[in-house]
Design a protein around this nucleic acid. Structure first.
Length: 110
DNA sequence: GCTTTGACTCTCG
DNA sequence: TCGAGAGCCAAAG
């Protein structure tokens, strides 16, 4: 495990920084990493070494809290539907794979 | 080591 | 407002 690169590790760290009931965007993560690799972020997540289970795991990598810049869930690996429901559970209003109160649940890593 | 791909974002029409 | 194209970056083949 953990056969990941520094880049991915950094991404995961930032993801874990996102509190429950909040979400962040790929763009913000990239900015925090000091790069514009928006795609690389998602790409790293797609090959997610932690596995999708990390989302429902304990303090793992809540990849489902990472959405597009416009608050859209875009497409996730194991079904965005499931993640949409999961986000709703956390108090985030999701409609048609889009976060309604996006600006309210958006967590800025600062 | 070069080419292809991708959970992205921005701009133009 | 919606659709298509271009740009950027990193990992995998």
């Amino acid at each position: 495990m953990r056969n990941i690169t520094k880049f991915q590790d950094k991404v995961y760290e930032l993801c874990k920084k996102v509190p429950k009931g909040k979400v962040t965007t790929y763009k913000i993560l990239a900015e925090k990493l000091g790069t514009k690799a928006y795609r690389a972020i998602g790409n790293a997540m797609n090959k997610n070494p932690y596995g999708m289970l990390s989302c429902a795991g304990k303090g793992m990598v809540p990849c489902h809290r990472v959405v597009a810049s416009n608050g859209n869930l875009h497409g996730f690996a194991h079904g965005i539907k499931k993640k949409a429901e999961l986000l709703k559970k956390e108090g985030i209003m999701v409609k048609d794979f889009k976060i309604i109160n996006f600006d309210k649940v958006l967590f800025k890593l600062r």
